[in-house]
Design a protein around this nucleic acid. Structure first.
Lengths: 250, 250
DNA sequence: CACTCTTACATGTCCTAACAAGTGTCCGCA
DNA sequence: TGCGGACACTTGTTAGGACATGTAAGAGTG
C-alpha cells in the first residue's frame, strides 16, 4: 500500500469507527506531514482522494471537514451485490432461477456487442437481504466468461469473486438507473403486484481492452434499496442525468 | 482560471468538439508540460480531475485513454433542471402549479431541520422537456430562502440562477434515488395512470455552514429521464447503494 | 518464424521549495 | 465597547527533480 493510500484509508477508518463524525475538522496538512513523516504531496493526494469521494470538503484557509457519513463504495461493491451487502453488515442470500446457454437474441447482441445468434449465457437470480427478497437480477455474459459459470455453484458465494479468481478482469462499468413497472416475472419473484414500481439498474461491464464482458438488468424493491450521492459545489459528479437518446456506451 | 483547470477544460473541450473520441489516447504528461510550459504538478492535477470524473482511464506505463463520451455534470446541472436541459441542447419549460407559505408539517420539519410550525415555502412545479412533461417537482425552502421566490416569476427562467443572484449560496447536496408509484397528483400532471412507476430523486441542499436550504422531491418519467454513471476499477464512486435504514443526512 | 530479453518511455510516487490567497485571531485605536 | 487592520495560519498552486514500476517495441537468439 502506498503512502497516500494509507493516509486516506486511515481517515476512512477513523470515520468508520466514529472517531470522526460529520462536521468534525481534520488535522491540518502540516499535522498530517508530521504524523506520517511525509511531505505534502502524499498528504494532499490522500485528501484529494477523499474529496473526490465526497467524504470531506474544505477550502482555502479552512481545514477540511467531514461532510458525509456514508462512505462511497469502491468499484466492486457497486458491481457485486454480495460484496455490497457484506460491506454494510447485512446478510446476503441468493437463489439461481435459471442458467442457460442460448443463441443471442436482439437484446443480447446489442448489449454484449456480439453477433446475433452467437452463444450467450443467461442467468436469472433472486437476491435476498437479510432473508427478504430485495432484487431480481437478469444477467447475460459473453460465452468466454459465461461458460465458467457452469463450473460454479451459483448459490454458494460471490459470482464476482469466483470469476475474478478464474482470470476474468473487470475494469470499467456503465450504469443506467431508471424506474420500471414490475413484469409478471418480477412480480412473482419479488412478491409485489404486477405493475409495481421497481428501481432498475442496467449496467455494462468491460475488460481493460474495452470489450464487453457482461450486461445486467437488476430490479430492486424500492423499499429495500436506493442509491445515494453526495455532491459538492467544487466537484463534478460522476453521476449524470440523461435522456434515452444519449449514448449508454462507453 | 488556474492552470490545471485550464488544462482539464481544454481536454473536455476537445472531447466535446469530437477531436478526441472514446478510445483515443491523450498526449503524454511530458507533452502536456511542453505545450503548456508547465511542470508536472498542474498537468497531473488536471488528469487526476478528469480521471475522477470518469472521463479518462489509463495506468502506469500507458498514456491516458478517453473512456467516456458523456461528460460528468458539474454541480449546478445536477441541481438545476433548467441548466441541465440547456447543457444537453434541449429546450426546458416549466409551469408553477403552487407557491405557498405554510407552517412546516412533520415532513417539512424533518427534512429542512426546522421546528414544526415554522414558516416554510412550498413549490409545486411541472417541468417540460422539449414541450413534453418530464418531471414533477415538489420543493420546500426554509423561510429565509423561500421568501425570495415571491419576488420572482417562477416560469420565466432558472430559479437556481435567481436565488444565487440574490445571495443564496448552495454548497453541498445529498441525493437519494429510488422508484415510486405515481400518486393522483403525479398522475394528473405527468399524464400517466395512477400507480405508474416514476424515478424519484430526493435531495437536500445546504449552504457552506451545513444549514439546510431546500429539500426536493423530483419525480421523473422514466421514458424521458434516467441517471447514468461511468465507473472505473481504480476510482471509488460517489454513488452508493443504500438501504432505508442508512442515514440520508450529510 | 517464434520466443525471450533488453531497453526506452510512460506513469506512479514522493521530495523540497516557494509564493498566492483566504480565514480567523488578536490587538490597538476611536 | 466596537471596529479596522496587522499578522499568523491554513490551504491552493506551481516548479523542478528523483526514483520506482509497469508497458511495449525492438534486438537478438534459438
Amino acid at each position: 500500500m502506498t503512502l497516500h493510500e494509507a493516509i486516506a484509508e486511515s481517515v476512512r477508518e477513523q470515520i468508520r469507527r466514529g472517531e470522526l463524525s460529520v462536521g468534525d475538522a481534520l488535522p491540518s496538512e502540516a499535522e498530517f506531514c508530521d504524523r506520517w513523516k511525509a511531505s505534502r504531496a502524499p498528504v494532499r493526494q490522500a485528501l484529494a482522494t477523499l474529496r473526490s469521494e465526497g467524504v470531506i470538503t474544505g477550502g482555502r484557509g479552512k481545514p477540511p471537514v467531514v461532510c458525509a457519513s456514508s462512505l462511497g463504495q469502491p468499484f466492486d461493491t457497486l458491481l457485486s451485490y454480495s460484496a455490497w451487502v457484506h460491506s454494510i453488515g447485512r446478510t446476503p442470500g441468493q437463489r439461481t432461477l435459471e442458467l442457460a446457454l442460448r443463441p443471442a437474441d436482439e437484446v443480447a447482441s446489442a448489449n454484449l456487442h456480439v453477433d446475433a445468434g452467437a452463444p450467450v449465457v443467461h442467468v436469472l437470480r433472486l437476491r435476498y437481504l437479510d432473508g427478504e427478497p430485495a432484487m431480481l437480477e437478469r444477467s447475460m455474459y459473453v460465452e468466454r466468461v459465461g461458460r465458467l459459470l457452469f463450473d460454479f455453484d451459483c448459490d454458494s458465494g460471490s459470482q464476482w469473486t469466483y470469476l475474478q479468481s478464474r482470470g476474468v478482469r473487470f475494469a470499467t462499468a456503465s450504469h443506467v438507473i431508471d424506474a420500471v413497472a414490475a413484469d409478471p416475472v418480477d412480480a412473482r419473484n419479488l412478491g409485489v403486484p404486477e405493475g409495481a414500481p421497481l428501481l432498475r439498474q442496467r449496467r455494462t461491464t468491460r475488460d481493460p481492452d474495452g470489450d464487453v464482458l457482461e450486461f445486467h438488468d437488476d430490479r430492486y424493491l424500492p423499499r429495500a434499496v436506493s442509491f445515494t450521492l453526495n455532491n459538492t459545489i467544487d466537484s463534478r459528479s460522476a453521476l449524470a442525468r440523461a435522456t434515452p437518446g444519449s449514448a449508454l456506451d462507453l
